[in-house]
């Protein structure tokens, strides 16, 4: 365990340093992504304003505000696209350079993702999060989020992160079969923003469709931790959604392992 940590820590640290080196592009990204959160904020406020109902899809207007911005906070620490790194490595042929070293390729990617996660947590996430809490108390007149909810949220987010990167690793394996993965990345982003509840809370969907979502890993990526933060799950339901996350971590871990074995067997390294 200690040894593993020592081997992979440099990957995380490097990524952290690298991210810091490209600050300018990062702040641009931050502004653009927050911009889309504000669009959805105004959209939802208009929707709530035009209806007499107090809650929509089980969320009050104030809860919707929290939902929108916590989705932002969560996705910036969860959706770290390691499949882009895979495709970059495939195109540049640097997968081979990973294979000649006694390291696990997936672990090195996940370590890099952890580095990115730490950075994104420190820079946009926590600021937006604090901003949101301040807004809640001063403008919306609500209480601060309870500490137990925060802890559960963080726990759930870590699992969300693992589910996302393990899934994305499997997805990235496509890069070994088609060199043109860019189009698929766009499709994946669109699908996830829909299926993980980034665009619309999943509770807005009809019962039948929600049942289908229950069997997909995507709801565990963003929707689950945000709803935990909102305190929407209690008791056995809470335990259920958390265990479901654990199950997804395990399943995707095994799946990635199987795929990687298949891929390395028929791996084609370009160039040389």
């Amino acid at each position: 365990m200690n040894k593993t940590l020592k081997i992979y820590k440099p990957f995380a640290m490097n990524e952290l340093k690298r991210q810091m080196a490209y600050k300018a592009s990062f702040y641009l990204f931050l502004v653009i992504s927050l911009f889309s959160s504000f669009i959805s904020y105004f959209l939802w406020m208009a929707i709530y304003g035009s209806t007499d109902a107090n809650t929509l899809g089980g969320l009050s207007q104030n809860e919707m505000v929290i939902y929108i911005f916590m989705v932002y906070v969560t996705s910036s620490i969860v959706t770290i696209s390691i499949s882009e790194w895979v495709s970059e490595d495939v195109v540049k042929g640097s997968v081979a350079m990973n294979l000649i070293k006694p390291i696990d390729y997936r672990m090195s990617l996940i370590s890099r993702a952890i580095g990115t996660m730490i950075y994104q947590f420190m820079v946009p996430s926590i600021l937006v999060w604090i901003g949101l809490e301040v807004y809640k108390v001063t403008v919306l007149g609500m209480d601060l989020t309870h500490l137990s909810n925060i802890i559960l949220y963080l726990l759930s987010s870590v699992m969300s992160f693992l589910i996302f990167v393990l899934f994305d690793f499997c997805f990235g394996m496509i890069a070994f079969f088609t060199t043109y993965i860019f189009g698929m990345l766009m499709v994946k982003d669109a699908l996830i923003s829909f299926l993980a509840g980034q665009l619309i809370p999943l509770s807005f969907f009809p019962e039948g469709i929600q049942r289908i979502f229950d069997f997909l890993p995507f709801s565990s990526m963003i929707y689950t931790p945000v709803m935990i933060y909102l305190g929407k799950y209690q008791g056995s339901e809470l335990i259920f959604v958390l265990s479901r996350q654990v199950v997804w971590v395990i399943l995707l871990y095994i799946l990635g392992d199987l795929i990687w074995r298949k891929v390395t067997k028929r791996l084609v390294v370009l160039g040389g």
Partner: peptide, 27 residues
């Protein structure tokens, strides 16, 4: 292994860092 046509070093990092990483990787 050395593949003359490409590098196994970390492109963006100072050379010293690459060696530090290798030190950890190979224990």
């Amino acid at each position: 292994v050395v593949f003359g046509q490409r590098t196994q070093l970390w492109w963006d990092l100072p050379l010293s860092e690459s060696f530090t990483i290798l030190k950890e990787i190979y224990n």
